[in-house]
């Protein structure tokens, strides 16, 4: 059942973004920014936690989940360290995804060569 829910929730998020893309001329970069920010905002409003509870990875795998994660990290840091947490929370929460992407990509740049578009 969890699998079906994850598929469903992840799929629906993608469909919403697809509709946004098809009806505006937004470039992928902007779309990703919008997604992350909506994750942060929905996270702060407590809505995204509900989506995650229902959809599991269907909610955490999309980039909006990355934003949600950012907010969770921020909230935790503020709860623990107050004002200092404002500067601590974001990167702590984003660290795994960002580091993984940077580290693997750097290694990939050493291994792979640019290829022709087919």
């Amino acid at each position: 059942m969890e699998y079906v829910k994850a598929f469903l929730v992840g799929g629906i998020i993608c469909v919403l973004v697809q509709i946004l893309m098809d009806n505006t001329k937004l470039q992928p970069g902007r779309i990703m920014v919008i997604l992350v920010m909506s994750g942060v905002i929905l996270g702060a409003l407590g809505i995204y936690a509900k989506i995650e509870k229902f959809g599991g990875c269907g909610a955490t795998v999309p980039l909006s989940g990355f934003g949600f994660n950012l907010w969770k990290g921020m909230k935790e840091a503020i709860d623990q360290h107050g004002f200092l947490g404002l500067f601590e929370g974001g990167f702590t929460a984003a660290s795994v995804g960002t580091s993984a992407a940077l580290i693997f990509s750097y290694i990939a740049s050493l291994i792979f060569q640019p290829k022709m578009k087919k």
Partner: peptide, 8 residues
């Protein structure tokens, strides 16, 4: 499309 763009 968005299915490839949206996930991590």
């Amino acid at each position: 499309g968005a299915g490839g763009l949206v996930p991590i």
